[in-house]
Amino acid sequence: MLCLIAWVVFGILGLFSVKYRVLAKESFDCVFRRITFKKCNSNLDERIKSKLTGNLMKFSPKMARGVYRHYEFLSWIFVALFVVSLVLGAQGAYNLAMYDNCAGPNADPDQCIFTPDYDVVDCDDPLCDDGHCEECGDDCDCEECS
């Protein structure tokens, strides 16, 4: 089931390289077949599993055995983690766009590193002209300029 993650990853990489576009297509085909309860007929999953196991064999045959035997279960864990992080990421992006705070409208803005940190424009700032801040907008503290 790792083909779901592979599809997203290769889909993004495929924007830049034909090699990954082919893999993205292959993984999409695999995802589609899996969600329609068919057997994945590309061997992408098998390839990922074998490469992973083969590489682990170099360091720890025991760990390789564990991964090989529980590959499907581990795949589902990774997919679940991937989906959860995707949902949380989307939620954060929505909050950031709507409330300037990815943690949510009522949360402490310091919890979100993306929260905009507006600089208060000093009255001596040359951008302040006739009490109106040209670049910073309404949040500037420029009323006293004049």
Binding site: E46, R47, S50, K51, G54, N55, M57, K58
Partner: peptide
């Protein structure tokens, strides 16, 4: 074990 699996594991390990 699948034949492709064996081949790929041999390739990845050594």
């Amino acid at each position: 074990k699948g034949a492709h699996e064996v081949a790929m594991m041999l390739s990845a390990s050594k």
